[in-house]
Simulated scan of single mutants.
Amino acid sequence: MVGSHLSQLAAADFPPFAPGSVWLVGAGPGGPGLLTLLAFHALGQADVIVHDALVSPDILALAPPHIERIHAGKRGGKPSPKQADITIRLIDLARSGKRVLRLKGGDPFMFGRGGEEAGELARAGIPFRIVPGISSGLGGLSYAGLPITHRDTNQTVLFLTGHDESGAVPSGIDWPSVARAAPVVVMFMAVKHLPVIAGHLLAAGRPADDALTLVSHVANPHQSIHQITLGEALGPVDVPTPAIVILGPVARYRDQLHWYVEEARKHVFG
């Protein structure tokens, strides 16, 4: 039965991955099962994979062994390739006639700088395709039992990045508007500056007892969840990264809906 499914996948009418082109592909929040079929197809067709640090080894292992892998990950506080150098590498690889798979954690256009990379490819005349992925700030929350919206709590949600290109808290954020815009705020890359962000939100009127949930390794058997309040986030918060931060009342559903970790650990660790 598995072989039949794989045969159907191989026979699917996927678009050709042409030499001299770049596919910007979202790898999702970690688990290989959360890849799209088009992303899986690309892994088997590429000549070279240029991947972020957050792309799991299990996902990279789905590509045939002969495909070249180039690490281009950027992690806060660690030596990292410059964005301009990554983009130049993509262009050079494509111009050499390779099928270039740019594999990015989550979704390329959700705080993933995919728009910047695609723009540079367009200006260089390099054909490209965008393959969306499941963002940790969307589907990834499901693995923590946190519905991003719920009829009883919120009909709106706001997404926020915790740092800008320099690594500092973004200076252009209208914090009073953020504080009022939605009951639920989902923050990416926010752990390092969480005390500063919490201070801005409290000063803008968010209540100190607002629930704050930090989910590390969202779609990984090593997932961990740290529950505090916004007021408590003014002090140091020590959680593993990468982590997603969720502010708001959907935290109340976690105890009932937190389905993933025990099943995952049973499967992986026996």
Rank of each mutant, 00 (worst) to 15 (best):
P132D: 06
S224F: 02
Q223E: 07
R180E: 14
V169Q: 12
H200Q: 15
P221Q: 03
A124T: 00
R206N: 01
T161C: 06
D210K: 03
I126C: 13
E120I: 06
A211S: 14
V184I: 11
L212P: 02
I126G: 13
T156C: 13
G162N: 09
V191W: 02
I197W: 05
L214D: 03
A144W: 02
A181F: 07
R206P: 00
A144S: 08
L202M: 06
D164V: 11
S216T: 10
V178K: 10
L121D: 04
A219G: 03
G172L: 13
P195A: 00
S171G: 14
V157A: 13
A219V: 04
T149E: 03
Q223W: 03
E120P: 00
V157R: 06
V184E: 02
D174K: 10
T153V: 15
Q223R: 04
G172V: 09
S216E: 09
A168T: 10
V191R: 04
V178R: 11
A219L: 09
G199F: 07
L201W: 03
A204G: 06
S135W: 01
I130W: 05
G199Y: 07
T153N: 08
R123T: 14
H193E: 02
E165F: 10
M187D: 11
V218G: 02
L202S: 03
V131T: 05
A219D: 06
D152L: 13
M189R: 11
S177W: 12
L160T: 05
V218H: 06
V218P: 00
